[in-house]
Simulated assay, not measured.
Amino acid sequence: MSGRINLVRIRIVDADITTLEVDVVVNAANSSLLGGGGVDGAIHRKGGPEILAECRKLRAGHYGRGLKTGQAVATTAGKLPARWVVHTVGPVWSATEDRSELLADCHRNSLALARDLGAKTVAFPAISTGIYRWPLASAAGIALTTVHQAEAGPIEEVVFALRGDAAVDAFRARHNSLA
């Protein structure tokens, strides 16, 4: 499924984000920047040691205590068919505390960094919906609304690379409600 929001083309696909030929792949990273499970682990494994080496340099410098939730930082994409990886740390979902703005910051700051890099194509996973337990419908709404409101700049296309029917259906339903 695809459509346009502002001047940015939106595509929602069931795909492995590590196989997409885009300028920027957004990594749902953990704060250590040193790899982990899910999307983060897949990006580090398939991207190779160059990504980890740059993440270690970031940790040795400005991000010594790790990357804060909602922030974004870029590294090489290593062996991935992308130019850069933008790492962002999503919030853990809470039934008692509204952390929606932090999830929006992940998308907003990743897009701003991608624009600064001159990227024309950006691929996002469903940030925070794995082990951080964010409900899919809510995450889809926040992600798509944030992309809808963001300045496009050089970005021409945003791809939501999701896994499974539930994620694709949630994102498509939200996309259709914004169209």
Rank of each mutant, 00 (worst) to 15 (best):
N27H: 10
G48C: 10
S128N: 05
Y63A: 00
K68A: 15
H148Y: 12
H107N: 05
H62D: 14
G47E: 08
T129K: 03
G141R: 12
Q149R: 13
H62S: 12
L144A: 12
F124I: 14
Q71T: 00
A112R: 14
F124C: 04
L52D: 02
Y63C: 00
P49A: 15
V122A: 06
D40L: 03
T96N: 04
A140P: 01
L111C: 05
L34C: 03
F124A: 07
A53Y: 12
G70R: 05
R108Q: 12
S94T: 09
I43Q: 08
A42P: 01
K57E: 15
D98Q: 06
W84T: 11
S32T: 15
A74H: 11
V73K: 05
C55E: 06
E101L: 03
D105S: 11
R65S: 08
A126F: 07
G90A: 05
Q71Y: 13
T121M: 02
S138H: 13
W134D: 14
G38D: 10
N30Y: 06
I127G: 03
G36N: 09
H107S: 00
A74R: 10
A140H: 05
R99H: 13
L102H: 08
C55A: 04
D105I: 00
G61R: 02
R83M: 06
S128Y: 02
C106Y: 11
K79A: 13
W84Q: 08
T69D: 09
A126Y: 09
K79P: 00
H44R: 01
I127V: 15
W93C: 02
R59M: 12
H107P: 00
I131E: 15
E101R: 03
K68N: 13
V73G: 01
A119P: 03
L67Q: 10
R115Q: 11
L144D: 15
K46C: 11
Q71H: 12
E101G: 01
A114F: 03
C106P: 03
G78R: 07
V147N: 08
T88W: 09
V25A: 11
L67D: 10
G78A: 09
G48D: 11
D98C: 02
A74M: 10
Y63P: 00
G48L: 11
G36T: 13
V89A: 07
G78Q: 09
K46D: 15
A42E: 12
S138L: 13
G130C: 05
T121W: 02
W84F: 15
S31W: 10
V26L: 03
A104W: 07
F124K: 07
A143T: 10
A42G: 02
Y63D: 07
L80M: 07
D105N: 09
T76Q: 08
A95Y: 07
A119Y: 05
V92T: 14
L80Y: 07
T69I: 13
E50N: 01
R99V: 09
T121Y: 02
L67H: 08
S128I: 00
H44L: 00
H148W: 13
V85P: 00
I51Y: 06
G47I: 14
G64C: 02
C106I: 10
G141N: 14
H148R: 15
K46F: 15
G38H: 04
F124T: 13
R108S: 04
H44I: 01
N27M: 06
S100Y: 12
K68V: 13
L113I: 07
L52R: 01
A143S: 14
A143I: 11
